[in-house]
Design a protein around this nucleic acid. Structure first.
Lengths: 185, 185
DNA sequence: TTGGCTGAGACGACCGGTCATATTGGACGC
DNA sequence: GCGTCCAATATGACCGGTCGTCTCAGCCAA
């Protein structure tokens, strides 16, 4: 039962956002009685924290360190994976890390800390793969790879905002073209 | 009285987001009785739409077309203006366009349309200034300026997400350095 | 019988919106 | 200029609904 609640929670938070996703919506989706919720979670916030942690894992940051794939190709595949997920949602929902930052982070220190770590880790992993790409001579030698990694997190999160505003995958094209054909070329 | 409500609405929506900003919070902040609200606005959503339009105007996109300033300097000044505003909020709040996109756009077509237009206009203006900079020889000749304009909107919105997650202005440094010293250099 | 777990529904707070009544401002007539 | 009337606006209590959380009666296993 607990597992069903976590999955349902993640889906509802992702789809509606934290405030608009009611505990009742989550338990309905999980097919469990609403009263049972507090037998498993201390609060709605506690579930949100667990859902965010699960989401972070599903970003598959490990792929960015996969030595069997060329660094630049890894980075591209990573963003393609993320893009394809959003395409599967019909260009809705965005990224849970970005969504929660926007809706919750200013007012909730626990969640803000978690998001800071999550986004920071992602940027770091990107920076790592970029450094490898630089060593391999795939990207210009003068780039500060840690900084570019951070910039790409920004560019990606913003791309998702545009995808949602436009309800179109076209901003992804901008991201891939400018990132790989201009910035990293 | 109506003006007070609009200003209070904009402040509350910006600070708390659409769902968490109650009509009562807005009227309290405006110093008007709650019942008066519906004499001036049909609904909370109607106020949000007006607040968003006001916010769009306050982005001062006209500055991007100011012929008395060099194009690249205009662009930089434009982002510095936006950055300074966020610094004034203590690295909280983000951009209302991005915030509403994240929280509301998936579920509200009217607001989604408005946000699409708002972000699109901004990208277009940036693209225009970039094209001028390119003609002036300030940025590389091979760049697709319209696409870069769109990419910069993404990079900026994502930068604001990181600023909020980290509660730190450092992501702005990444933005300015990578944008002006790498991407447009 | 006892102890632990479960879950339906109660609880108090909050929400957007309504509406009967009160107040105000402007137009008109003297 | 002043008084009256009416339309417009203001007001705050109320409405029905939703919300996160908690409680306690019921159930089940040992």
């Amino acid at each position: 039962m607990r597992e069903e609640i976590v999955e349902a929670g993640q889906a509802q938070f992702h789809e509606r956002g934290f405030n608009a996703a009611a505990v009742k919506d989550i338990t309905d989706r999980a097919g469990v009685p609403k009263g049972s919720f507090y037998n498993h979670f201390e609060s709605k916030e506690a579930l949100a924290i667990e859902a965010l942690e699960r989401y972070g894992v599903s970003r598959r940051l490990g792929d960015l360190a996969d030595q069997s794939v060329e660094p630049l190709a890894r980075i591209r595949a990573h963003f393609e994976y993320l893009r394809d997920e959003v395409l599967g949602y019909g260009n809705l929902r965005g990224c849970m890390l970005g969504n929660f930052t926007t809706e919750v982070a200013d007012h909730n220190d626990s969640i803000q800390q978690l998001l800071k770590q999550g986004l920071g880790l992602w940027a770091e992993r990107l920076g790592g793969a970029l450094a490898e790409a630089q060593e391999a001579g795939s990207i210009p030698a003068g780039l500060d790879t840690a900084m570019i990694g951070r910039y790409l997190v920004s560019a990606w999160e913003g791309t998702l905002i545009r995808v949602r505003a436009e309800r179109s995958p076209e901003p992804f094209d901008d991201f891939f073209t400018v990132t790989f054909d201009t910035l990293l070329a």
